[in-house]
């Protein structure tokens, strides 16, 4: 059961989107997210939808994989929609019963909010689905490098992230082993209420932590033995280099942002209340 957890889900495929530089994907995802939140018109969302469909097609990631990511936010989504729907008091009243009032504005805001959230999740999971965790860390490191000037240990943070990614499967396996060992000794992990079950986790967490620290110590020794001494003077085996497709991607995304903005401003496209 514990093995089903996957973090930084990556969908391996050979597509243009997969081959893009991770920096491009990170920056473009951010641009896309910003464009969603400054958008407030139907035509803008239509363009965003077309753009998303275009990118999903280009990425060769099956649609159901992308939708899976939405499951995690269903509660948040419902909460936002309900709140916006019933608590917005401005505008003409559409429906009124007992203490609930739905106004035109309320409906409009809640629908737009839902679209924003859904597209936000689709957009960002598209990034993680098409980028290996390693490439993602490299991209983040390279994008945040200017922060070095403010004494932010960018390289170290990126190194920590990639080591964490490397050890997730190892520690999961270890947790599994410890659980079995404790069950074999008569530990009861399944029954009882929340509190009892949480308490039952202690004999699993303690050995897990001890072993994690031991591993960390070993790993630090091994890194030092291989001449690791921080980011300074280090070269890269796989340096990030912008290629033509990366510039093209920037151009396309910027064009989309401009188009969506202009369309929202000058051709807002009104249908009923939207």
């Amino acid at each position: 059961m514990i093995r089903e957890i996957t973090i930084g889900q990556y969908y391996p495929a050979d597509s243009v989107i997969h081959r893009l530089d991770p920096r491009v994907k990170i920056v473009c995802t951010l641009l896309f997210l910003i464009s969603l939140f400054v958008q407030n018109s139907l035509s803008g969302y239509v363009i965003a939808t077309l753009f998303l469909v275009f990118v999903i097609r280009a990425s060769k990631v099956p649609f159901r994989f992308i939708v899976k990511g939405l499951k995690a936010i269903i509660l948040l989504l419902m909460f936002t929609v309900v709140m916006n729907l019933f608590l917005t008091k401005e505008g003409a009243v559409l429906l009124h019963f007992w203490i609930f009032t739905i106004t035109e504005n309320g409906l409009r805001i809640s629908v737009f909010m839902a679209i924003r959230l859904i597209y936000l999740i689709i957009g960002s999971s598209l990034m993680t689905l098409t980028t290996t965790p390693n490439a993602l860390t490299d991209g983040i490191e390279s994008l945040l490098r200017p922060l070095n000037r403010f004494r932010v240990p960018v390289h170290e943070v990126a190194m920590i992230m990639s080591i964490a990614l490397r050890f997730i499967p190892i520690l999961l396996e270890e947790t599994d082993k410890i659980m079995k060992a404790q069950i074999a000794r008569g530990a009861d992990l399944e029954s009882g209420n929340m509190i009892q079950r949480t308490k039952a986790m202690v004999p699993i967490l303690v050995p897990l932590f001890v072993s994690a620290f031991r591993r960390a110590n070993d790993l630090a020794l091994a890194m030092e033995a291989r001449c690791y001494c921080g980011g300074e003077g280090r070269t890269k085996m796989k340096p990030l280099v912008y290629k033509r497709q990366d510039y093209a991607a920037y151009v396309i995304v910027v064009a989309y942002v401009v188009l969506a903005f202009v369309a929202g401003r000058f051709a807002p496209l009104h249908i009923w209340i939207f």
């Binding site: 965790p133 390693n134 990639s162 490397r166 070993d218 790993l219 091994a222 291989r226 890269k236 085996m237």
Partner: peptide, 18 residues
């Protein structure tokens, strides 16, 4: 506990990178 990279070739490259 001594393999640092998430891919074999990246791990082998770790020393020379340093």
């Amino acid at each position: 506990n001594q393999i640092i990279g998430t891919i074999v070739e990246e791990d082998v490259g770790f020393g020379p990178e340093n």
